[in-house]
Write a protein that binds this DNA or RNA. Structure first.
Length: 276
DNA sequence: CAAGTTACCTGACGGC
DNA sequence: TGCCGTCAGGTAACTT
């Protein structure tokens, strides 16, 4: 379930193996992803071109080509990218293989196919923020993401706090796990109505979201479930969750029993004492 | 227009 | 043993 930290870890993991490499061959599986690209379009925009930078925006990974074309990956629930020797066995659910000129291969694997692959032609990449990312909110580490921004955005809404921060238009990259962890760190209840949150509380939440995400990136991304880091070694660092999946356990602050409740259709974990 | 619900997928797991 | 229901959650499309 790659959220922002996991995508960032994948990016850092594969970037050195991709930059400066040109694309020699592309192989697609016959399975459809949530969104995918035809082999014909891939070949036209990618073959013979060189990857110049690997970036991230929200939970998307962006491979910029020297032609200015852009190959974009979203990992959905179970997606992953890795670099392999050409003769490494093909895994079940490998949906895209991009052979590079140095006889290595970038492989996109996605068991549940909630992931997506997008390809933008050079002329489509000039103003990404107003096109592809038109509805995507600020990055959590951007100055634009601050207490005042959240306060103003929330004041006319009645949503639960957790749903609000998981909405990509509010802030990019926060999924269920880090929403739970950030709210616990900020001592805020997931079910609070967002129009009742004070500016001071929003400021605290911004600070805690950044701290939680930064910590997760530093831990190499979480290794929960089927996330595997870019070098394909499962779990080299394990993020220690304080609240996610801990229902029935004692709160690390006050020893009360951690509760589980569905909020906005998603499993939510919280301490009813600390996050009153 | 905001907010809530469902569809898309596979695999792991628990109950019987 | 094996069958079935449930759950996991990112996002878009849908309904209320």
């Amino acid at each position: 379930m790659p959220e922002l930290p996991e995508v960032e870890v994948i990016r850092r993991g594969i970037r050195p193996f991709l930059t400066g490499k040109s694309i020699k061959k592309i192989i697609l599986s016959d399975k459809k992803l949530r969104h995918s690209v035809s082999l014909w379009d891939m070949n036209r925009e990618l073959l013979g071109n060189t990857i110049v930078t690997v970036k991230r925006r929200a939970k998307y990974l962006l491979c910029h080509l020297d032609s200015s074309a852009l190959l974009i990956f979203h990992f959905g629930m179970t997606g992953n990218l890795g670099i392999f020797p050409l003769d490494a066995p093909i895994a079940k659910h490998d949906h895209l293989r991009i052979e590079l000129h140095n006889d290595t291969e970038l492989r996109f694997n996605d068991t549940r196919r909630f992931g997506s692959i997008h390809l933008l032609r050079p002329e489509e990449t000039v103003d990404l923020e107003n096109t592809f990312f038109k509805t995507t909110g600020p990055e959590p580490f951007d100055a634009a993401f601050n207490g005042e921004y959240l306060f103003n955005r929330a004041k006319k809404k009645t949503q639960p706090l957790k749903t609000f921060i998981m909405t990509n238009a509010t802030v990019a990259g926060i999924g269920n796990i880090y929403a739970n962890e950030s709210l616990f760190a900020a001592r805020l209840s997931p079910v609070r109505k967002v129009n009742k949150i004070s500016l001071e509380e929003w400021n605290t939440l911004v600070k805690e979201i950044r701290r939680v995400l930064q910590h997760a990136i530093a831990c190499g991304g979480s290794t929960i479930s089927d996330f595997v880091n870019a070098s394909q070694e499962s779990g080299y660092f394990q993020m220690n969750f304080k609240i996610y999946g801990k229902d029935g356990d004692k709160c690390s602050i006050c020893s009360s029993i951690i509760q589980k409740q569905v909020v906005g259709g998603r499993a939510s974990f919280y301490c009813s004492v600390c996050q009153g």
